[in-house]
Write a protein that binds this DNA or RNA. Structure first.
Lengths: 351, 351
DNA sequence: GTGAAAGCGCTAACAA
DNA sequence: TTGTTAGCGCTTTCAC
């Protein structure tokens, strides 16, 4: 066992060529005769050559620019976490000549997405990390990127049609099943359980549908035990009507628990339950946002499901960096663990 | 805004000295006159100099050796996961001239720990990652390391007396509270809950005591609601007597749930409950081991608490690498999130 | 105390 | 098609 790492120079010597030639085959830049190519290849694998990545990036002296296209973090707490992940990764990868630029669009405004996308393009990025929440607009833009050979990774939502390098997010179906299970586990008697979509943003429709399917399937599978699942959609309601509807929903004496699919809907529901003193109703929802955490602590919310938005973006940047710098292969899709948060493990996630 | 990074050369120029001198102040190796020192310091912070870490490690051409001292992974599935984390990190850091050597001792044999520790020392490591499960022996050994200025990080268990660079593990107290909470949440009526230490290895005593305290405290705080907590210690029992004891324990009609603190104890208890058809008893335990997972899937175990042993060791290596390579400061203690595993989120943790 | 220069492993422009 | 060589930014030895 030779302790020393084999260098290009060693390979060159063994193959009886110069380092330049070896470098050419390593990066298959051509201009190498078949014979020497074969010979070098042979030595390469025989000695198990592994490039020194430090020397590589130092020597090549390339700068990479990654554009991150995400919703404005100042407008929404959830996206602030995504943004934090980008900041973190930015710091980590700055050593490697990788710069990250952020482009914030308005979560509620398609036009702003298109406008920012154009800006992203103008910045001539080497790669893009994006949350393509406006499906149509995203499709157009990323087709353009595709044509220009700009690699992109999506997180949070996906647009499979434009085949991103990778999608980082959660398994929404399984996520709905988990919500159902948590309600089930925390309610010993059988009864009725509802899944609520409140203040759904139109671009979330697909996710919510998948969550709903998971929720319903879970209970269907135990149908014989008297579970029921109801799906309610309170998108863009007038406040008073929402309150009335919730009231009506909860008159059902068999109603045992609610899964709320949107973070905002969650704390509205929580405040409703608290106001009406409905401690008999179990409540499960998504995201570690401030108000949700408060209601979790108070015991109004029983479980939160955490999507780890910060880690999603940090990983996205890492993937792109590894892809460009080291030609690493990236998985098509990386679905995160569904993390369950309760009062007792909350602080261990130190958010 | 100057886009170009300031290099040592730039600093030297601005300060009217040579790169050698700048390097000397950067690493305060002395041999610099007070005046030039001051001048260089000035330029340094004025220009916000940040060293290029790649060039640094490449230039210094140092090799680091980290010794990992852990229980034999072939003897116990839990430690196989710890070992996997080391392998993973090994790969990741090999680029940086960091080698990791593993030293496996027998989990059940103090003498083997001492023997392997001696081997570790003989290997002249630059740093050590260890699970110091034999308190006395570890104390002796790491005092020696301390004297020899070999930094060490502990994971899984701690020996605070020898002040490791960092302890990576879980908050055992909170972990016990979480176990209690999960039992509580999944049992609507009040009743009796027990915490069981089965086949406890003597060196685990402290952890188990902390878990127990967390468990008991949780229920004490709701004492008024009729909860009870019982602590049972079935260390090193004869098999038949254990079965008898469990049988006796479960005759209590108020018994609602069990928290088992050791992985082995957990699947023994699970198989017991299954055999006797006690579906009325909730069961919570630790670690994503094969048999535990099976019982979770079957519904005999309701929740598993995951300690992420793989990530613990991978992080340990990362910390040491960053410490030696980049002089990064490491937290004294890194307590991991307590991850809750159920049937529905199990697969998303793709173990 | 200080500076010059070689070298870390790799890249890429240029000569041959 | 191949070899040579000057960097990349930093460390470290050695001479002054």
């Amino acid at each position: 066992m030779n302790d020393k790492n084999v260098r290009i120079k060693d390979i060159a010597q063994l193959a009886g060529v110069s380092v330049g030639t070896v470098d050419r085959v390593l990066h298959n830049r051509g201009k190498v005769s078949p014979e020497t190519l074969e010979k070098i290849m042979g030595v390469l694998k025989k000695k198990g050559y592994k490039p020194n990545l430090l020397a590589r990036t130092l020597g090549s002296n390339k700068k990479f620019f990654i554009a991150a296209l995400i919703p404005d973090p100042t407008l929404d707490e959830y996206w602030a976490h995504s943004n934090a992940g980008i900041t973190e990764a930015q710091e980590e990868w700055s050593h490697y000549n990788i710069k990250v630029g952020t482009f914030y669009f308005n979560l509620y405004d398609k036009a702003s997405f298109a406008k920012l996308a154009a800006k992203v393009f103008d910045s001539r990025p080497d790669a893009i990390l994006a949350s393509p929440i406006f499906h149509q607009e995203a499709m157009l833009f990323f087709k353009l990127c595709s044509k220009n050979n700009i690699p992109y990774i999506f997180f949070n939502s996906n647009v499979p049609e434009v085949e991103p390098l990778c999608f980082i997010g959660q398994d929404f179906y399984q996520s709905g099943r988990l919500g159902a299970e948590l309600l089930d586990l925390s309610t010993k008697a059988s009864g009725t359980f509802a899944i609520l979509h409140i203040y759904e943003d139109i671009h979330n429709a697909i996710h919510l549908a998948q969550k709903e399917k998971g929720f319903i399937d879970y209970f269907l599978e135990k149908n014989n035990q008297g579970f029921k699942a109801i799906s309610l959609d309170y998108s863009h309601p007038q406040e008073p009507s929402l309150e009335k509807e919730l009231l009506a929903l909860l008159t059902d004496p068999k109603m045992k628990g609610l899964l709320v699919t949107t973070s905002k809907g969650l704390f509205i529901t929580a405040s409703f339950l608290e106001k009406h003193g409905r401690k008999d109703i179990r409540l499960v929802g998504y995201d570690l946002l401030r108000e949700n955490i408060e209601y979790l602590k108070k015991g109004v919310i029983d479980f939160l499901i955490h999507q780890n938005p910060k880690r999603q973006t940090a990983l996205g940047i890492s993937y792109l960096a590894n892809y460009m710098l080291f030609k690493k292969t990236i998985p098509n899709t990386d679905l995160f663990p569904l993390e369950i948060i309760t009062r007792q493990n909350l602080k261990t996630f130190n958010i």
